[in-house]
């Protein structure tokens, strides 16, 4: 039995989440093959070859894989799907986009967002924004799975897998990739950061987020946000943590001016240590916090930055 892991990468490096997916594959058992599909991405294939536990890397390098457009990604995976008992990808915007296509074309029910492997056919996945954990068993011949990175460790380095070329599938021509606008930041990526400082509606403005950024920079942290902060235009949409944003589980999560709606908690309540700063003594965020401070954030945050 072999497991196929589809890597998310930027052409040079693997994105956070991919090696956690390799760890999930290792728990299932069997030889692990990693597929690196993209345009001019040979370097990323070399990176995948170094991940411990990976037996083989398939490199599909062609213009139609730029941007990992769903229709073409699914068509490519279909050319090799028959060789694997399990097909895994990270449950990020990347994996969620094309994996259900793969599943539908194989006539299997995808298992979304698994947080634990019980056995080769049984998995745990959060439902209802993480308010319940379902253990599900699949009867399908191939298991198509997306993996919640926070449920699995980052895989170590130390592998030396062979890299083979995989022929591209014909371009489906269904959609045209016109490019991406990526927000630039010198701070760590949210899903890979050891510490996250997140702000909510309580921040009041884009301008005020600077005091959080100062704290983040002192800690070497990433900056996140609640949906209310994103919707109010304080920060870009890719900062959003929650049920419909990013799922994070850093060592330390500092929630500032965030009330703690279930949809926000869904994205961060598996963090190791949670701190909440809120002026409302009844804020629901306190229920998941290890330490909480009832204070005006405009006083507490600069003080905290100063004290560190």
């Amino acid at each position: 039995m072999s497991v196929l892991v589809i890597a998310e990468h930027d052409g040079k490096q693997l994105k956070p989440g991919t090696t956690n997916t390799v760890t999930a594959a290792a728990k299932i058992g069997g030889d692990i093959t990693v597929l690196v599909a993209g345009h001019q991405c040979a370097e990323a294939a070399q990176a995948a070859a170094k991940v411990a536990g990976v037996k083989k890397v398939l490199l599909a390098d062609a213009p139609q894989y730029a941007g990992a457009v769903a229709e073409n990604m699914a068509a490519l995976v279909l050319t090799i799907a028959g060789q694997y008992g399990h097909i895994l990808a990270p449950a990020t915007g990347f994996g969620k986009n094309f994996m259900p296509r793969v599943a539908a074309l194989l006539d299997v029910q995808q298992i979304s967002d698994i947080s634990a492997v019980v056995s080769a056919d049984t998995f745990v996945r959060p439902v209802y924004a993480g308010n319940a954990m379902a253990t599900v068993q699949s009867a399908d011949k191939v298991k198509v799975i997306t993996v919640r990175a926070t449920g699995f460790d980052v895989a170590a380095e130390g592998g030396s897998a062979a890299v083979e070329n995989l022929a591209a599938a014909p371009d489906t021509g269904l959609s045209k990739f016109n490019g991406q606008e990526l927000s630039k930041s010198d701070r760590p990526e949210l899903t890979a950061a050891r510490i996250i400082v997140s702000g909510g509606r309580g921040m009041q403005s884009r301008e005020n987020f600077k005091i959080l950024e100062a704290l983040a920079d002192k800690l070497g942290a990433a900056v996140g946000a609640s949906r209310a902060a994103v919707d109010s235009g304080f920060v870009p949409n890719d900062y959003q943590v929650g049920q419909t944003g990013k799922i994070v589980a850093p060592e330390l999560y500092i929630a500032v001016g965030i009330s703690g709606a279930i949809q926000h908690l869904a994205g961060m309540k598996d963090s190791k240590v949670i701190i909440a700063i809120n002026k409302d003594p009844e804020a629901p965020i306190f229920a998941v916090a290890n330490y909480w401070l009832v204070e005006d954030l405009f006083k507490a945050v600069p003080e905290l930055t100063q004290a560190l």
Binding site: G67, S175, K176, S183, N237, D238
Partner: peptide, 13 residues
Amino acid sequence: REIDGGLEKLTIK
């Protein structure tokens, strides 16, 4: 489209 790092633009038939 909203993607993890920002936004993506496509033309679909």
